[in-house]
């Protein structure tokens, strides 16, 4: 009789424990599902063009949706902090896509500047775009669209070893040359 009772108690305890644990799990997953569904609703709303504000500590997918919303409207100053947050979250694919989209938006603006022959505002945008594509490719070397667009950006404003490697210090003769090459600098009186 005793082993029977002991076994009965064991079954009771095990079933109770399983019930408690799985109820907790049900609660956890249900809450997460509801939150994720709501976040996906926000993501869809942002994609549809509604200006939904996203908390800065939201999940990277929501930040990314907000980032795309901002970049397609050329609001780069607001997008950059979101980009930094996405980059620091542990989602390399998502971060690569975010870097790529932000760089695309900058490159598009730069191209429209170039079409109307405005070189000066275009150059820093192209440089930032190149940097963005490089970051995207560092995270995901198989990102072909980023490779292609980086190629476009590289041909717009080419990298040169002198500029990249010399860094802060410009050798004096180069500085001299630069100065002389600038148009509109008075070269002394006749």
């Amino acid at each position: 009789m005793t082993p029977g009772i002991r076994r009965g108690r064991f079954i009771l305890l095990a079933a109770g424990a399983l019930l408690a644990v799985s109820l907790c799990a049900v609660g956890f997953f249900a809450v997460r599902l509801v939150l994720d569904r709501r976040a996906n609703g926000e993501i869809a709303a942002l994609a549809a063009g509604h200006d939904v504000v996203v908390a800065t500590d939201a999940r990277p997918e929501r930040l990314f949706a907000r980032l795309v919303f901002l970049t397609t409207r050329d609001r780069f100053d607001e997008a950059q902090p979101l980009m930094n947050r996405i980059a620091s979250s542990a989602a390399p694919r998502l971060a690569a896509a975010a870097f790529y989209d932000l760089a695309n938006a900058r490159l598009r603006v730069a191209l429209s500047h170039l079409e109307s022959n405005e070189i000066d505002p275009a150059v820093p945008l192209v440089r930032l775009a190149k940097e963005g594509y490089r970051r995207a490719l560092t995270l995901d070397p198989g990102f072909w669209d980023a490779k292609y667009n980086l190629d476009i950006a590289m041909r717009l404003v080419r990298d040169f070893p002198q500029i990249e490697t010399s860094g802060e210090e410009i050798p004096p003769e180069a500085a001299k040359r630069l100065w002389i090459d600038l148009p509109g600098v008075p070269r002394g009186l006749p």
Binding site: A30, L33, D36, N40, R59, E61, F64, V68, T72, A97
Partner: peptide, 20 residues
Amino acid sequence: ALRPDAPPPPIPVSGTLRGL
């Protein structure tokens, strides 16, 4: 012509659904 943007993906819920 640039390659198109990567669309923002939704949060994947299938794993949560399976867990539930």
